[in-house]
């Protein structure tokens, strides 16, 4: 029937009649979502970095000096058949020297003066994404052992530590996010209860003239939902600004070291989720306070 439009009109009117309370509710929701969003941006980017470095998880197999081209070719083919292996590249002694020379400014000139090339040739083994967890890398490395290799090398400690750090971060994000959302529901519930208290006459009069419970409550729920959505929207805008002016600054100073697209903005699903969280918090806050307020007997 026309209960929906009525509720919407009432909700809008209620928000304009009690602007202070509306602004308070929207601010609380926006602040919480902003914190969550900022955290999500940091998290997204950190796992992005891990993913990229994960692609770089390579096991360098340094070859003995006396293995000929045929031997190298046979070894390379053998490693490539392994199910964990994505690709194997051969790096000759000369290439190794060149890469090493390029890694530090001016080093190539120093190296050019050497009589002999001290660097071994190597097979660089890149693993499939499914086998890049630290313990798996160690396992694969073990199975790569051959007499033709003088040494195996991979940066396991670092990857492991990074992984642990990231799990910790995810866990704390979960805990913090839950706490924040619960606090938001509580705060929103309280501000809406204030709004209801300010308008308790309305609930009583609606009851007196024969309005059902839902007729009286629906405007408050709509109001909560609207404020939640608005809070979500405000948080998105602030997040965008924060990203633009704070995070990208960080990228400018660190970007070279950490990779080109550090500090990306949140993906669309995450933005939608943020809006949905605002809606849910607003609705839940309104619900908890409306359910607790009984229309007082007249």
């Amino acid at each position: 029937m026309n209960r929906g439009p009525y509720a919407l009109r009432r909700a809008l009117k209620g928000m304009s009649e009690y602007q202070f309370l509306a602004v308070a509710t929207i601010s609380v929701i926006a602040t919480v979502l902003l914190l969550l969003g900022a955290f999500a941006i940091v998290l997204t980017n950190l796992s992005g970095v891990l993913d990229r470095w994960g692609k770089d998880v390579q096991i360098s197999c340094y070859l003995q000096e006396n293995i000929g081209d045929a031997g190298v070719f046979r070894l390379k083919a053998e490693l490539e058949t392994m199910s964990e292996v994505a690709a194997v590249t051969y790096v000759s002694k000369d290439e190794a020297l060149q890469q090493f020379g390029n890694s530090i400014e001016g080093l190539d000139r120093i190296l050019a003066d050497l009589d002999t090339n001290p660097l071994p040739a190597s097979l660089e083994v890149r693993l499939l994404p499914a086998f890049q967890r630290p313990e798996q890398v160690a396992q694969v490395a073990e199975s790569l052992e051959r007499p033709e290799f003088q040494a195996l090398d991979y940066s396991h400690e670092w990857v492991e530590r990074y992984h642990n750090f990231l799990s910790l971060l995810r866990l704390s994000a979960l805990v913090l996010g839950t706490l924040l959302l619960a606090a938001a529901v509580f705060l929103v519930g309280n501000t809406i209860r204030l709004a209801i208290y300010a308008r308790r006459d309305e609930l009583a009069i609606v009851a007196l003239v024969g309005g059902t419970k839902w007729f009286a409550r629906l405007p408050f729920l709509v109001e909560g939902a609207l404020q939640g959505l608005l809070g979500g929207l405000v948080s998105l805008i602030l997040l965008r600004l924060l990203h633009q002016y704070a995070f990208l600054e960080v990228q400018d100073s660190l970007g070279m070291a950490l990779g080109p697209d550090l500090m990306v903005f949140l993906p669309t699903p995450a933005l939608v989720a943020l809006l949905a969280a605002g809606l849910a918090v607003g609705l839940l806050g309104a619900w908890t306070s409306v359910a607790r307020s009984r229309e007082e007997a007249l």
Partner: peptide, 9 residues
């Protein structure tokens, strides 16, 4: 208000 609760046009 007394009529709105009844859902009148």
């Amino acid at each position: 208000l007394a009529l709105e609760v009844c859902g009148l046009k």
